[in-house]
Structure formats: C-alpha cells, structure tokens
Computed example of a mutant assay.
Amino acid sequence: MLVNLKYVLDLAEKGNFAIPAFNVYNMETVMGIIKAAEETKAPVIIQNYSRLVTNEEGYYLAPIVLAAAEKASVPVCFHLDHGASEEAVVRSLRFGATGIMIDKSLLPFEENVAATKSVVELCKAVGVEVEGEIGHVGTAANGDEQTTEYTTVEEAKTFVENTGVVALAIAVGTAHGRYKKAPRIAIDRIAEIHDAVDASLVLHGGSGIPDEEIKASIKAGIRKINFGTDICFSFLDKVFETSRDVYAIDLFMKDAIENVKEFAIKKIKLLGAENRI
C-alpha cells in the first residue's frame, strides 16, 4: 500500500529499527525491492534520484513505482532523493511522490534553512512531508567519509525547529558511493542529535558500511538508511553474468531481479525491518 513518509518513519521510531530506502532506476529494480519487502513483511521507501525526475526517465518510472506500491501488501513510501531544485520537487509531487527530500546542504546554513522551509510549506499544501539535510555528506570516491565536520546538535535542533522537516539527514562520517576504506561513524553524535530533535534521523551512503556500524547507528537513533550504489551493482553484476544466448529481455532480466531482491532482503533484515507488518 502506498503511504506517506511520516507513516513509515513513525513505525521505525516506535519499533527502534530503520526503514531501508532503496534507489530504483528501472522496472526491474522496482520489482526486486517490492518482492523483497513482501517476502520479509517489511515497510520500505522506494526513491527516485533527483536527476531521474528532471530528466525523462522519471516520467516513465514514476507510474511503475506507484503501481507497485499500491499493489503491495506492505507499506511503501515513494520518495524523492536529494531533490536539487524546486523543479524536481514539483515534478515529483505531480508524479505522485509521498515523500520529498530537498538537499540544500551546500548552501550556508541560514540559506539552507530558508530554502528547506520554503519546500516544506509547498509540500504541506498537498499533505507531503519533507526530509532535509545539514552537514556535508560527500562522495566516497573523494575520500569524503574521513571528514570530521560532523553535524552538531545545535545545528540539527535549530534546523528542525525552523524548517518543519520530519526527517533529517546528518553528516556523521558517511559518504555516497563505494568506500575506499570502511568509514568511521560518529555513533555518539547520532545519539546526541536523536535525543535533541523532533525528527527522524537519516543515514545517507549506506552502501558499504560494515554491518556492525549499521546496527550501532540504528541503536543510537537512525531511522532511515539509504542504499543506492549497491542496488546498481546487485543489478548490473547479474546482468553482466547472464548469457547473451538468452535474448528475450523479460527472461534475460529474471536473474537480475532476483539478485536485487536478495540484496534488499539482506538489508531489510540488517536494519531490523523484517516482520514489522
């Protein structure tokens, strides 16, 4: 069933687990995620990256996500990931998104607050909640996971109180992409921010974080964890392995769908989201 962002985040907060948020890129990745969620009886977030929304792919992909979510026997939120502009936000709302992330984290703090608050007000008009971001969640290829510029408790509290976001992505040592070496997550900082703010905390850059770090971050208060890069690899690795003798595309894709499903099941179980419905 299609639900809003706050619905799944409230489930996670009440149950002390994290919602897996999977970025999807085509029908097959959507199918793999939905199959995993239904098999494990887990609530999930299916995300479209901002680029897909503002390019033509989102026009075709959004109806697939919506159809899958509405048919699913588990709660599914359809979310914009790293919305880069108001255009991406408006397009996502028109495409049927039930959650929005606006990422203005590269702006000075005050400008980030103002831009995020504007999007929160826009989305409020249609009953959609918003995720924001403060601090630098960079790119693993650049070694950004080694940053010590973590989000402070004061910044997080001020941001949430002045924007009205229901979810907040924080900088605590993670980065996007595959890590050159395992990141050091600031678990104590997560716990401090969780105790101080009235918003669900989000960990970006979930691909490649050691399992024990994931578990510790959830125990400290993380309620949503994003997986994008490893979804791509779980799909592409199987595509590259599949024989070219299988030329009917629907048959060719079956193993890739299964590989995405198996990857998603592992993450659902790791985050404690299994059997929550």
Rank of each mutant, 00 (worst) to 15 (best):
A125P: 04
P63L: 04
C123T: 10
E110I: 12
V65L: 13
E131R: 11
E87Y: 09
I100Q: 15
S105L: 01
S92A: 10
E86V: 03
I64W: 11
V113Q: 08
A69I: 05
G96F: 04
H79M: 01
L106W: 09
H79F: 06
E70V: 08
E131M: 02
E121M: 03
E110P: 03
V90M: 07
G127R: 12
H82C: 08
L66G: 11
D81F: 03
L106M: 11
Y60E: 13
R94F: 06
I100T: 11
C123H: 11
T116H: 11
H136Q: 02
S73A: 14
T147C: 09
G143K: 15
S73Y: 15
Y60W: 05
G143N: 07
S105R: 14
K71L: 13
D103C: 02
E131V: 07
E87P: 01
P108E: 14
C123N: 05
E133C: 00
A141V: 11
A125K: 15
Y60H: 05
V90N: 08
I134R: 09
L107I: 08
R91S: 11
I102T: 08
H82G: 01
S105W: 02
L93M: 05
A115H: 04
G135R: 03
K104D: 10
N142A: 10
S92D: 07
T139V: 13
P75R: 08
V76P: 11
G83Y: 06
C77F: 09
V90T: 02
P75I: 09
V90A: 05
I100K: 13
D81T: 02
L122M: 12
V126D: 02
E145Y: 04
V89W: 05
